[in-house]
Simulated scan of single mutants.
Amino acid sequence: MSRKHPVIAVTGSSGAGTTTVKRVFENIFRREGIRPAVIEGDAFHRFSRQEMKERIAQGDLEGRAVSHFGPDTNEWALLEQQFRAYGQGGRCRSRYYLHSPEEAEPYQQEPGTFTPWVETPADTDLLFYEGLHGCVKTESIDMVRHADLKIGVVPIINLEWIQKIHRDTRDRGYSKEAVSDVILRRMHDYVHYIVPQFGETDINFQRVPVVDTSNPFIARDIPTAGESLTVIRFKNPRGIDFPYLLSMIDNSFMSRANTIVVPGGKMDLAMQLILTPMILRLMEIRRAQLQ
């Protein structure tokens, strides 16, 4: 952790809603005049798309499950090094993973490859990370100790599968059987490296549908925000003004002493109300240290 150069980590599996949280943070940063350095989790994958396909195929031949969720396919030590570097000096290095032809065209590269490493801009106020592994903690890696605010974003597992099935079959041309194979291949790493992070986060936003998702492989539609609730759990509820949140968010309620439940369509509002004062507090501490 760093009082002069704070680090915010948003972590969640693919399709979990981390993009929504990223948009909320962008709005807060713009409104409050905060200059973030931004690094994306995909930048710290170890292999290009083609290299990853080759390693998955080799793993299948050898009876090993290879996925983007585990340590062998990610540069976790390098990511931790960037968290540490930013906390110490306010600068770190990153790059972009080019997902699509549209993203790759300005760089004159192929989709599924990485841009060169570059330094983050000087004179930023904080580091913002969004990706799969912002709170990974193993025997040799500890991202948690470097992050000042840790946010988990995770839907219940069946909803996560529905979102992945629809995205991969509709946008990427995979069959349901192929998507099922990917889900199974990822399961060991998901259980051992993704799920434990949500015990380390300061706040978790978990989307829970209120429609039947019991068989995600036959679901015709992704449950909408209006068909969902968002469960918000605070690791340390001390200082959280729950009466204020309940008064500001219609139809919200508390399910436990550290948990508030809001309508799915109000998740953006809840994030704004909860996260804005936390970010401003980080900025107050930073300014005091720089004086």
Rank of each mutant, 00 (worst) to 15 (best):
M1P: 08
K4E: 15
V7N: 03
I8E: 02
I8C: 00
V10N: 15
V10R: 13
T11H: 00
G12K: 05
S13I: 07
S13C: 11
S14G: 05
G15N: 09
G17S: 05
G17Y: 08
T19E: 12
V24M: 11
F25D: 00
N27I: 04
I28M: 05
F29N: 01
R30N: 14
R30C: 10
R30A: 08
R31N: 09
G33A: 08
I34Y: 07
R35V: 06
E40R: 12
G41W: 00
G41H: 00
F44T: 00
R46C: 09
Q50C: 07
E51I: 07
K53S: 11
K53V: 00
K53P: 00
R55M: 11
I56R: 15
Q58W: 12
A65M: 06
V66A: 08
S67L: 10
T73P: 03
A77T: 10
E80W: 07
G87L: 09
G89E: 13
G90K: 06
R91V: 10
C92Q: 00
C92V: 02
S94F: 13
R95A: 07
Y96E: 14
Y96A: 09
L98F: 01
H99S: 03
H99R: 06
S100G: 08
E102P: 05
E102L: 10
E105K: 12
P106V: 03
Y107R: 12
Q108C: 10
P111V: 03
F114L: 13
A122G: 07
D123E: 09
D123A: 07
T124C: 10
Y129D: 04
E130Q: 08
G131Q: 00
C135L: 13
C135S: 12
K137V: 06
E139M: 05
E139N: 13
M143V: 03
M143N: 14
R145T: 12
K150T: 08
I151Y: 00
G152V: 04
G152D: 09
N158M: 14
W161I: 09
Q163V: 08
K164H: 14
R167I: 02
D168H: 10
T169D: 03
R172A: 00
S175C: 05
E177L: 10
A178V: 09
V182R: 15
V182M: 13
I183V: 11
L184T: 03
R185I: 02
H188N: 15
H188P: 12
D189V: 01
Y190A: 10
V191S: 10
H192V: 04
H192K: 15
I194H: 02
P196H: 01
E200F: 12
T201I: 04
D202F: 11
I203S: 02
N204D: 12
Q206A: 07
V208D: 11
P209L: 06
P209G: 01
P209V: 01
V211P: 01
I218H: 11
A219Y: 10
R220E: 12
T224E: 05
L229A: 03
T230K: 04
V231P: 00
F234G: 09
F234W: 06
K235I: 06
P237W: 11
G239T: 04
G239F: 01
Y244H: 15
Y244P: 03
S247G: 15
M248W: 06
N251F: 02
R256T: 04
N258M: 01
N258A: 09
T259L: 12
I260F: 07
V262Q: 07
G264R: 05
K266D: 14
I274F: 11
I274Y: 14
M278K: 15
M283G: 04
M283S: 05
I285D: 06
R286F: 05
R286W: 11
A288V: 09
Q289V: 05
